[in-house]
Amino acid sequence: MNKELREFRRLERVCLEQAALSTMDLARGGLLKVADDCRIAAEAIEAQTPRRAFTGAVQALMQVWSTTRVPNRH
């Protein structure tokens, strides 16, 4: 999945660069549309990528905080 993500990001970058160099409105618009599609695809891949280390750290902190919390004595 990392390879696909890198490829979509690379294609997005290439399309944006080519759109900046394009002198034709139709070509520029098409390149920008493809770049946007590549960005959306890359974001979808990123959303599916598990963030195990970060998630594990957050869960561990939540567990520690919940066990060390001092009860409210009002």
Results as ranks from 00 to 15, higher is better:
1 M>R: 10
5 L>H: 10
5 L>T: 10
5 L>Q: 04
6 R>C: 06
6 R>Y: 13
7 E>Q: 14
8 F>E: 08
8 F>R: 09
12 E>K: 00
12 E>D: 00
13 R>T: 15
13 R>Y: 09
14 V>R: 04
15 C>V: 10
16 L>Q: 12
17 E>F: 14
18 Q>K: 15
22 S>Y: 02
23 T>A: 12
24 M>H: 11
26 L>W: 07
26 L>C: 08
26 L>K: 13
27 A>Y: 05
29 G>S: 03
31 L>C: 11
31 L>M: 13
31 L>N: 09
33 K>P: 12
34 V>C: 06
36 D>I: 15
36 D>M: 11
37 D>Y: 03
37 D>P: 10
37 D>Q: 10
39 R>N: 05
40 I>V: 13
41 A>R: 08
41 A>G: 02
42 A>M: 07
45 I>K: 02
45 I>W: 00
47 A>H: 10
47 A>V: 03
50 P>K: 00
51 R>E: 08
53 A>Y: 04
53 A>Q: 11
53 A>I: 14
53 A>N: 08
53 A>D: 13
55 T>G: 01
56 G>Q: 02
56 G>A: 02
57 A>M: 04
58 V>E: 11
59 Q>T: 11
59 Q>H: 09
60 A>Q: 09
60 A>K: 11
61 L>I: 04
61 L>E: 13
63 Q>E: 12
63 Q>M: 08
64 V>N: 01
64 V>Q: 01
65 W>D: 09
65 W>N: 09
67 T>K: 05
67 T>A: 03
69 R>S: 08
70 V>D: 01
71 P>V: 02
74 H>E: 10
74 H>L: 07
